[in-house]
Computed example of a mutant assay.
Amino acid sequence: MDSLRAPRMLFATLVIAAASLPLALSPPAAQAAPDGRIPLSVLREATLDVPAWPADDVRGPSGRLRFHGGQVPIAPRTVPAGQPPYGDSVMILSVAYGDVDHDGADETIVVLGCLIEGGSKQIVAYDRDAAGRIVSLGRVAATTGEIRDIRDASPRVGADGVITALVADYQRCCADPTPQIWQTRGYALRADRFSQVSGPARMPVNPHVTETGVSTGPLTFGPATGGYRYGSVDVTVTHRRGAVPRQVTLLFYPPDGLRRSGDWPKVTTEPDSFSVTVPGPAAGGSVTHRFAFRRPAGSSGGELAVEVTTVPESSPAVPWLTNATAPIRG
């Protein structure tokens, strides 16, 4: 009988020992992905990581920004002629949802704007981390280069995680009737950053839109002669993309005492300005025109503002490139 009892006792001991093993030996349960579907009401009062705004569009603050009522006000700031202006506020313009990182849970796709009347826009993807904090997955697309507008409510997330959006070559403001070219482009998360994966890679030429800008050197005067100083300024007009102007009109806004000197093309005068029409640059090229001035010998300092418009007139894709300021020296 003792020989039969021993195996039973050993079996019972093993069962008890197994039952007392720590639960850590059991296979761990799979952890659910954080819920990245962030309601608009939460976003409007959240602190969000905002990527840097494009260098060639309206600028504003970036980094961790605290939103209230869906916006962040921007203190007024002046910039030199020919430089992108600063916006009045950063705003949440629209929200969409979808699984862009293939973790089985939705993320939040936000269109942000840094706006004056128009302004910069960017699409940014947000998620939550394991602790529930809102984190940025990065910028999807922005109004930079050939892309000058994004339709606010256009982003959609497909079953494959691709974010599609409507982008345009020109941004209208107010009652501007300029025709725009719209394209649908798709973006996907690849190696921790978003890249374009579908849609056209380039914008066709819009005959109604041009990116033609103006720049100047200084207006430098020499020594006094007969009570006046004489000098000249080089004005350079550059075509970057879009419609190529046959001619350009240069508008000059002179300070008090500054007068034209020497030979000029035909001049049209206004109470506070005058203008000349001259040959425009070749496609993708530049052309420089030199203009002579004089002013009383006792005058000094100041600046000469110059503006360019195209002939025939086309809408400027980048408006601030159409203005320049020449410092007056001597």
Rank of each mutant, 00 (worst) to 15 (best):
T47H: 00
S198Q: 02
A17R: 12
G36H: 11
R148M: 06
R295G: 05
S94Y: 11
G199Q: 06
Q71H: 15
P177T: 11
L137W: 06
L112S: 06
L48I: 07
Q122R: 11
R66Q: 03
E117M: 12
F293P: 09
L219F: 02
I109N: 06
G36V: 13
A168S: 15
D103K: 13
V311F: 02
A32H: 10
V124P: 02
S215V: 06
T178K: 13
T268H: 06
P255N: 10
H68P: 00
L112H: 05
I150K: 04
Y230F: 15
A6P: 00
A52G: 04
S273Y: 00
A165S: 13
R172M: 06
P39V: 12
V42H: 04
G302R: 07
R229G: 00
D56P: 05
P61R: 03
L43T: 01
R172H: 07
G98T: 04
R133S: 11
R329G: 01
I134H: 08
T288N: 01
R156H: 05
V79K: 09
R185G: 01
P80H: 04
V79D: 11
L40K: 07
Y230D: 10
V72F: 03
L23C: 04
D272P: 01
T178C: 08
R290C: 01
F293T: 01
P316V: 14
S299P: 02
E303S: 14
Q183K: 08
L14G: 14
A224W: 09
L40M: 12
R148H: 13
G302C: 13
V205C: 04
E307P: 00
G113H: 04
S26Q: 09
Y126K: 11
G186E: 01
L10P: 00
L112F: 14
D263M: 07
T13Q: 12
D103I: 10
P76Y: 01
M91S: 15
D272R: 15
F11S: 06
P22V: 01
N206H: 01
T322I: 13
V276N: 14
Q31P: 08
P155L: 07
W182Y: 09
